[in-house]
Design a protein around this nucleic acid. Structure first.
Length: 564
RNA sequence: UGCCCGGUGGUGUAAUUGGUAACACACCAGACUCUGGUUCUGGUAUCCAAGGUUCGAGUCCUUGCCGGGCAACCA
């Protein structure tokens, strides 16, 4: 990685940390955490938060914990814990021995709750959910006190004990903070701290039937772990006064909550709920469908961890709700894969080429560079023979201006092989070219002409005799509009891109491409970056297109079309 | 008709904290090239508005406009 890439630009969070370091607010410590709820799969938006929290810890020589915020057993489970751990590791971050669970703190939290009750700062409420909602008032009008708000401390203590002991059914009672039912911030209108849930927890089993709410639990988790900077997304801004209130009333260690704008990416969605719909409605093949913005999807697509980290570094951190263009992500992917991926030749839509003056049955092993960006990657042999495949779109019988590739009478280079000149075409009954005949110049073996003559273009090719059959899955944007959720009077699924997946089953690749493992990332020269899919079979690999190469010819074609 | 937060090129982010707007992506033009890739060079384009403070404002103050969030026993 370039030192330039490593450079972290300023942001308001690092400014706050610098200030705190200057004033010695946390004795010079920097300790962050990434606190996912284990109720779904991580997506690239989480990736931003992960890079932020782990990145800050790394940069300041501090620590970052991985903490599962598992306070709601009805939605959470072990399978999510495992996938989240795998995804964060894959992204390249390490929490060492600091893997924590909010559920590990349930006893401590309960003790704190008892303390607040004793201080007259919390009470047991018999109102049901609907009644509590009615008493809460509205955004513009104050709420009303619950009739149970002024219960004596002893009674509250007793009731709380009974709640914990399982003497009440779900929803019969709650523990609430006693703050202010007329507070302009709705979060401060006596928020619920504990609800009764007779549900088995994936870690604590049946030990508990009361579970803490986010606002009550989260600050305590941060406090217990001695977090210094508790970084969360913007929608918790209105919760900060409550975060502070609990910690202050308890008189315990008090981290600083800082909110930032979560990631939005054009042409996709980031909402867990809506991603679930895509999976359930069968719009995609699963959570790891390469079109999904999930970490597992991105991984299968062929995006590298480094490219994600580079992306997160470039997008910055701010409080403004922005949408990052997909192009930037793709740029980061290309930038990394250009430097790191091995090159191969593969033909997506084969067109048969016969080299008429090449000896029948002869096979030559020609040297090809594995990665021009990395001399250490070495070279390999590519077999050349009389019958080859080239890309169908690399030949045009009647070429337009600026088309440099093969056409009748024209000479081009076959990469690492020979200069060839098109002499003839064979068409089917519909007039479609099904075969191209060429002659080759034996003096240009390897791809250089001794007489110094130039050709306008170089084509990739595969020996027909030695070709490896492959399937290629071409992925494109999942949606046709930049903001699928912002379209008026329409469901986001109405904007699914019908061409987001094109499957090509009769592709041809050079033999060396058969020696790859699932998740290996390569470049098919002149086409794009690809990733070996786990669906690959021994005799027929499957390649997912991560992203195409920048395509100047496609751009020229577009311009030419516009002019017409 | 409440509270909180935000507004810098097309898109994002920055500006030595009050000193004359930069970086990246995208786009355009050119150079180089055995990938129409990579690389290199150049270019277009920006402070929401109005007042105020100041020698000087993207930065501070006021007002307005626009955008986002908040009324789960979700996180």
């Amino acid at each position: 990685m370039d030192t330039e890439d490593k450079e972290q630009s300023r942001d308001f969070i690092r400014d706050i940390i610098d200030d705190d370091l200057k004033t010695g607010k946390y004795e010079g410590r920097v300790h962050t955490r990434f606190p996912p709820e284990p109720n779904g799969y991580l997506h690239i938006g989480h990736g931003k938060a992960i890079c932020l929290n782990f990145g800050i810890a790394e940069q300041y020589g501090g620590l970052c914990n991985l903490r599962f915020d598992d306070t709601n057993p009805t939605r959470e489970g072990e399978e999510y814990v495992q996938s989240i751990i795998e995804d964060i590791k894959w992204l390249g971050f390490d929490w060492e021995d600091r893997l924590y669970f909010a559920s590990d703190y349930f006893d401590q939290m309960y003790e704190y709750a008892v303390q607040l009750v004793k201080d007259g700062k919390a009470y047991v409420d018999d109102l049901n959910a609907e009644e509590i909602s009615e008493h809460r008032g509205t955004l513009t009008s104050p709420g009303k006190n619950s009739p149970y708000r002024d219960r004596p401390v002893e009674e509250n203590l007793n009731l709380l004990e009974k709640m914990k002991a399982g003497e009440f059914g779900d929803g019969e009672k709650v523990l609430r903070a006693r703050i202010d039912m007329a507070h302009p911030n709705m979060n401060m209108r006596d928020p619920v701290m504990y609800r009764i849930l007779h549900a088995a927890h994936h870690r604590t089993g049946d030990k508990w039937c009361i579970y803490p709410m986010y606002d009550w639990a989260h600050g305590l988790e941060d406090s217990i772990e001695k977090i210094t900077h508790s970084i969360c997304s913007l929608e918790f801004e209105n919760h900060r006064p409550l975060y502070d209130w609990f910690l202050d009333e308890l008189g315990v260690y008090h981290p600083q909550q800082i909110e930032f704008a979560r990631l939005n990416l054009s042409y996709t969605i980031m909402s867990k709920r809506k991603l679930i719909r895509l999976v359930e409605e069968g719009d995609v093949s699963g959570w790891d469908d390469p079109r999904m913005p999930t970490i597992s999807g991105i991984r299968r697509r062929g995006y590298s961890p480094e490219s994600i980290r580079s992306f997160c570094r470039r997008i910055g951190v701010a409080k403004f709700n922005s949408t990052i263009s997909l192009e930037l992500l793709e740029h980061c992917v290309r930038q990394d894969l250009n430097k790191t991926s091995l090159r191969f030749m593969g033909v997506l839509r084969p067109l048969k080429v016969v080299i008429d003056n090449y000896p029948e049955g002869q096979v030559e092993e020609l040297d090809a560079v594995n990665n021009p960006e990395d001399p250490d990657a070495g070279t390999r042999k590519v077999p050349f023979s009389k019958v080859l495949y080239i890309e169908r779109e690399d030949f045009m019988e009647d070429p337009p201006k600026k088309f440099y590739r093969l056409s009748p009478g024209r000479e081009v280079r076959l990469r690492y092989a020979y200069f060839v000149t098109c002499t003839d075409v064979v068409k089917d009954e519909n007039g479609e070219v099904i075969e191209v005949h060429c002659t080759y110049d034996p003096a240009t073996r390897g791809g250089d002409s001794p007489d110094g003559r130039k050709v306008k273009s170089t084509l990739h090719w595969v020996s027909a005799e030695r070709a490896l059959d492959a399937e290629v899955r071409l992925y494109d944007k999942l949606f046709t509009v930049e903001d699928p959720l912002g379209q008026k009077d329409a469901d986001f699924r109405d904007f699914l891109n019908p061409d987001s997946l094109e499957i090509l089953k009769s592709c041809k690749a050079e033999p060396a491409a058969g020696n790859l493992k699932p998740f290996d990332r390569i470049q098919f020269e002149r086409i794009g970056y690809f990733c070996v899919d786990p669906d690959s079979a021994e005799e027929k690999p499957v390649f997912n297109r991560a992203v195409g190469l920048r395509d100047t010819w496609a751009r020229i074609q577009k311009q030419q079309k516009k002019k017409k």
